[in-house]
Every structure is written in C-alpha cells, then in structure tokens.
C-alpha cells in the first residue's frame, strides 16, 4: 500500500484528456475536505466551492469528517496508530460520499497521506486495526455505526486544490472577470506542499522547481517575483509559533521582509495555516516590536484570490473582518473595471 496511490494521478488525466482535463471530473463525485482554518478564512472555501458549482461539478461535504489531527500527532499527543485510525475513519466516511477529495490546506493533505504511509508498517497497522475493532464492538444502529476498516483497495483519491486548479487552468481562466493587472506577486507554496513527494531516484523530479502556482499567477495576469526566502517556512512550524514565538516569528519576518524588498504587491499561498501565520495582525505587531520593521504586505490564499478574480463580493471572498494589512487595496485594484 503506497501513499501515492491515494494521490490522484494527474499525468494520467492529462494523457487521457489532453484537450480538456475538466471532462475527467464531470461524472465524478467530489468532496471538499473541511479544513479547521476555513473558519477564519471562509473565502478559502467559497472560492473553490463557487467555482466548482459554476462548472456544474458534483460536490459535497462530508458531515462526519473530523479534523485531520495532524497538529496533535506532531506534538506527540496521539500515537501513530491513533493518528492513522483517525485518518482511516475520515477516509471511510468520505469514501461513502465521494470519489475524489479536494484539499484547501497543505496540512490536512499531508496528514491524510502520512496516516496511510504509517500503515505500511506492520506494527502500526496491527495497532490501528485493534483500535478500529474496539470501535466496532461499541457500534449500535445505523446512526452510530463505528464500523471502520482499513480499506485496502481504496478507490478514493486525494487532490490538492492547487494541483486541481492547475489541471483545469483554462476553464479557470475562462471563469475570471478580472485579471491581476501586472501586480507583482510573491509565491509561497508552504513546506508541506513544496517538500512533498520527491522521488530521489528520478533526478528530474528531485531537482525541478515546483512552479504550478507561479504559472497560475502568470496566467491570471500577474508577475511572480523571485525573492530570497521563497522556499522558506512560514514560521508556523507545527505550532512552534505558539511555543517559541520569538524564534518562529523571526522566520515569518524574514519571509515577508524578503518579499517586500523585491517590491511584491502581495503574497499568495495555497495553505490557510501559512496564511494565518503570515497575516495575523497580532503577529505583525509583535514582529514590529521585536524586529523594528513594520511590514504591511498583504497575504492571500489562492482560493480567495480566485474568488476576487471571479468577481465575488468582497465580504464573501476575503472576509474583511480578518483585517489583514492592505487587503482592501489589492481587492480594489483587482476589481477596478
């Protein structure tokens, strides 16, 4: 059981549907994975949901899906088997309603893949099975099934929003009302997208840059700028920001400063956790206090940007109550007729 079996094979789709990859998704049931942080940034959800609805794709949300629990695993508050059991529970639930699951968060995406990866280890698999069997014994009735198995031949496939949007980029482009008007954009992929799935035996895969977001920004009429800290961490670091804020925010500061110093108008990322770290006003204030420079570069999630470009109303796509510096300015520039 290889983790990448869970990842939707994009090359295959491009081969099968060279003209229009969207066709592949037309008869598929899609499910949007609920990332906890969408609560703070609802535009992250609406951005993708509105687009999928307009494209008349069959989408749903899985009511019984829980948080991916990655944050607890990373701090040793649950074991690998428990983490895998939570993942298998979610996969079982989503498998009932969908064929493809879309992710707006690098962390959730990485969690689901990692939970599966652990099942390759016989000891972890045995323990995970034990936990799931314990659940079964407690099961009563329809609404309370507790019936979860490790699904050996799972058909469900996982897909990161960025990979999806890139795959159907021409249809995305056709759905846009505005363009990026040559704005300079700093791209931040986020570690758990950037550092994922590198095949070291395949030299090309190992050393090539990941560029999908750069390409999308260019396609949307923006100019991706190269900045020194492009590949560095946002500073969240599996909750390091909560535990060692002075050190962690130094990383955040360096990143934002480096993007500002090459004249980026804003920074875009496909991950709400990175977005949270890079945009929270309280963190900006702390950075100002500790490192002496006031940073006001706006930060936007890819799905929020998509919503803006598609002409979604301000409150729905960027939820101004999040008070990120100068976001309204960017909104105003992009949506100027």
């Amino acid at each position: 059981m290889e983790s990448f079996n869970l990842v939707l094979n994009l090359d295959e789709i491009e081969r099968q549907y060279p003209e229009n990859s969207l066709d592949y998704f037309k008869d598929k049931k899609l499910c949007l994975f609920k990332a906890c942080l969408e609560k703070y940034f609802p535009g992250v959800r609406w951005g993708i949901q509105d687009l999928l609805e307009e494209l008349q794709l069959n989408i749903s949300m899985c009511v019984n899906q829980s948080c991916c629990s990655g944050t607890f695993f990373q701090r040793n508050l649950i074991t690998r088997a428990q983490f895998s059991a939570i993942n298998e529970r979610n996969l079982n639930e989503m498998n009932q309603v969908a064929e493809i699951v879309l992710f707006s968060c690098n962390g959730c995406y990485n969690s689901l893949l990692r939970g599966r990866e652990f099942l390759k280890i016989p000891e972890v698999k045995k323990k995970t099975n034990k936990i799931l069997n314990r659940l079964k014994k407690k099961g009563i009735g329809q609404n309370y099934p507790h019936k979860y198995d490790i699904l050996e031949n799972l058909n469900l496939k996982l897909l990161h929003d960025l990979d999806f949007l890139y795959l159907i980029r021409n249809d995305v482009l056709n759905s846009l009302k505005f363009d990026l008007k040559d704005l300079k954009v700093a791209i931040h992929y986020g570690c758990h997208y950037l550092n994922l799935s590198r095949d070291k035996r395949n030299v090309e895969d190992y050393i090539r840059n990941k560029t999908k977001l750069d390409e999308l920004v260019t396609l949307f009429g923006g100019i991706p700028v190269d900045y020194q800290e492009r590949e560095s961490c946002c500073g969240w670091g599996a909750s390091q920001l909560l535990i060692n804020p002075k050190e962690a925010l130094k990383i955040t500061f360096n990143k934002l400063k480096s993007a500002e110093s090459v004249g980026a108008d804003f920074l875009v990322t496909p991950c709400p956790t990175c977005l949270y770290t890079l945009s929270k006003p309280e963190y900006r204030d702390k950075m100002y206090k500790w490192y002496g420079d006031k940073l006001d570069i706006p930060t936007i999630h890819l799905n929020e940007l998509l919503a803006m470009l598609r002409g979604c109303e301000e409150e729905r796509c960027i939820t101004l109550r999040r008070k990120t510096p100068r976001l309204d300015e960017i909104f105003e520039i992009i949506t100027r007729e």
Binding site: K34, C36, L37, E38, K39, Y40, P42, R45, M61, V63, N64, S66, C67, T71, L77, I78, T79, Q82, A85, I86, R89, I131, R134, L135, K138, N143, Y144, H146
Partner: peptide
C-alpha cells in the same frame, strides 16, 4: 475540530464518542 464553531458546525455527538474512543489513553 480545533476551532470553536467551525464553518458548518462540529461533529454529531455520537461521532465525538468515536474520536474519544480512538484517543483512549493518549
């Protein structure tokens, strides 16, 4: 979820039981 009041409400109570059972002794 890790946040209060998520976008479409939390899990139904019986499902919460499942998470608690999985996390036993953790």
């Amino acid at each position: 979820t890790v946040l209060e009041d998520p976008l479409e409400g939390g899990l139904p109570p019986e499902r919460i039981e499942e998470l608690n059972e999985i996390c036993n002794f953790a």
